[in-house]
Design a protein around this nucleic acid. Structure first.
Length: 172
DNA sequence: ACAAAGATCCGT
DNA sequence: CGGATCTTTGTA
């Protein structure tokens, strides 16, 4: 079952860890459908978070982060990789979760490649999309580790926040 | 208008 | 550890 709209409208620090263990689903035009267990996510939270793109306020790129949670936020990094994020929180609360990894994937850039992401996904409503959405995973106990975010050393004290969550193991 | 840097990845 | 590659943002 696709996660409910209200799931995304909560604070990113609540949504991000709750995403671990859920299923990322991609449906292609051909009808082929693939799903992966989400294993690693990062939270980006508000204009005060100097690692967050919204640090520079409302711009063409960050506009979607000011929308209510549940929109897809994609952006191109280093001219090559599309990064997959989902906006969280209420309207005018710029936040997003970066989906860094699924079971069997290497990094967020490679994940974007596997999903065939591009600019057209920007702003897509993940509650309604027919090509990309999130579903509940199996009910099971997960061991999750909480660590620092990657590649945000420039963000001073914000770089120290333990705003990355990674699946450590599945406890049966 | 221009320069700088980037939520990455790969090869050395 | 440096380069690729191009978009976004800050500065003039």
């Amino acid at each position: 079952m696709r996660v409910v709209r209200q799931f995304w409208e909560k604070d990113v620090l609540e949504v991000a860890p709750a995403l671990i263990g859920k299923m990322l689903v991609r449906r292609w035009r051909s009808g082929e459908e693939k799903r992966w267990l989400i294993t690693e996510v990062e939270a980006y939270r508000g204009e005060e978070d100097l690692a967050c793109h919204a640090r520079s306020g409302r711009t063409k790129r960050t506009e979607v982060m000011y929308q209510p949670g549940g929109r897809v936020y994609v952006y191109l990094i280093y001219g090559k990789y599309w990064m997959l994020n989902v906006v969280t929180g209420k309207e005018n609360q710029p936040q997003a979760v970066l989906i860094r990894g699924v079971e069997g994937s290497n990094g967020p850039g490679k994940l974007g490649q596997r999903l065939g992401l591009d600019k057209s996904f920007y702003g897509e409503d993940i509650n309604l999309s027919l090509r990309l959405w999130i579903e509940d995973g199996k009910e099971r106990k997960l061991k999750i580790e909480r660590i620092r975010r990657v590649g945000v050393e420039y963000a001073g004290r914000w770089a120290e926040k333990l705003w990355r969550w990674k699946l450590d193991q599945i406890e049966s």
